[in-house]
Design a protein around this nucleic acid. Structure first.
Lengths: 223, 223
DNA sequence: GACAATCTATATCAAGTGATAGAGAATGGT
DNA sequence: ACCATTCTCTATCACTTGATATAGATTGTC
């Protein structure tokens, strides 16, 4: 007389369906926006049928939320660098630490173009979805990067620029080439966004935002 | 026995309708993408009825093209600076000339947020519309800016960064705050994108991309 | 001011939308 | 091997979409 509760016996194939739907959803939402992406096209891309979306996620809206969480967790994995961990742990960030974060961001966003495409498409108009995504995902990133810049600026390590301005300039400079990759391919061909481009882009971000290498430590020279 | 051809007597009110539809279309396309924006919502925003779109523009697709041309002509007016004219006229661009172009770009895009919202939404997925907009509008801008940077770089005036990388970093840094203004308002409040922000942003762009002021001319000092 | 041309408004169409109902197939604990 | 549960698939719903047909109102030229 044990186990009166209804037993739940999830089947393995359901996980594969959910995963395929999440990946397909991000791709379709990124390419066509929330309203522009149809549940049928998402299901077709996932190799399944449209009612599966409502079965597994209840509604198109909840599929969107699940897909956003899904891809943001990939981003968190991708940018989890020692430098970032040290900074979030309360340590004072250094010029080289911020440079490492910049490089990690470029590498991460270049590998997750759908995330930033979806973000930029959602952020162009106010909505309940935007409110949700800002409070759940964006604000933490903003606080982190803006706080790091403010700290560097107050110690005279970087230029005297407002942290909000830097935040949007930085995000824009880091993501635009990958967000607009279809355009970039038409403009300059396939060479865009290969490995060499990404590496050069990462170094360019460091040069642009942190300026030339600082003076060597004044160890024996000064005094 | 003159004028056998059917006379055309366009009425004045038609212009007002077309203009209202173009403005409404840009706003709706920018906010929801091409598929996401409905002709009924566009017509409602323009204060008219949905079949007017087909009467005046034949199809949703041609309305989109007309709206894009409409807003790009506004951009051309906004960035028509003496410095840009001198450069396009074949002159060699200077550091200060490029700085003036950067400031003009920031001012222009901050005043035409719908243009860059629409651009970034379209450029996230390949399509006939993207091909059209690239060949008709984007490529000229790319050639101009990339060429200017290459010229400055070859003369040692700016950092050694590939011009394609600079182009996307520059466009991203210049536009992201305005493209994502709805998000920015949720993140940091209404102060974003006021006049002071735009001015500071323009100066920040100069600092970031052109670096610190160059050494004073070596007039009497060197030799 | 007549009146043909131009523009606007209403009604409606076929196609596509997200969602649901329910039959059918696959799963896994016993 | 059974068989209740879980998952998948087909059929269909009410609604919205872009487009068209057509009736009605307005305009500008004579």
């Amino acid at each position: 007389m044990v186990n009166v509760m209804p037993v739940s016996r999830p089947q393995a194939r359901a996980d594969a369906t959910r995963e395929a739907l999440l990946d397909a959803a991000i791709a379709e939402f990124a390419a066509h926006g929330f309203e522009g992406a149809s549940t049928r096209s998402i299901a077709a891309r996932a190799g399944t049928h449209q009612p599966q979306i409502n079965y597994h996620f209840d509604s198109k809206d909840e599929l969107w939320r699940a897909a956003v969480d899904h891809v943001f967790s990939k981003l968190a994995d991708a940018v989890a660098t020692p430098e970032l961990a040290a900074f979030t742990g309360g340590g004072e960030i250094t010029r080289e630490g911020f440079a490492a974060v910049l490089r990690a961001i470029v590498r991460a966003v270049s590998g997750l173009p759908e995330l930033n495409r979806m973000m930029v498409v959602e952020a162009t108009a106010d909505s309940d979805r935007l409110a949700w995504i800002v409070e759940r995902h964006t604000r933490g990133i903003y606080d982190l990067l803006a706080g790091a810049w403010r700290s560097l600026r107050e110690r005279g390590i970087v230029a005297e620029i407002d942290e909000t301005i830097v935040y949007y300039a930085l995000i824009g400079a880091a993501t635009m080439a990958y967000v607009n990759a279809p355009e970039a391919r038409r403009l300059v061909g396939e060479r865009v966004i290969d490995e060499a481009f990404i590496d050069a882009h990462a170094e360019a971000m460091v040069t642009i935002f942190l300026g030339p290498e600082p003076d060597p430590p004044p160890a024996t020279r000064n005094r």
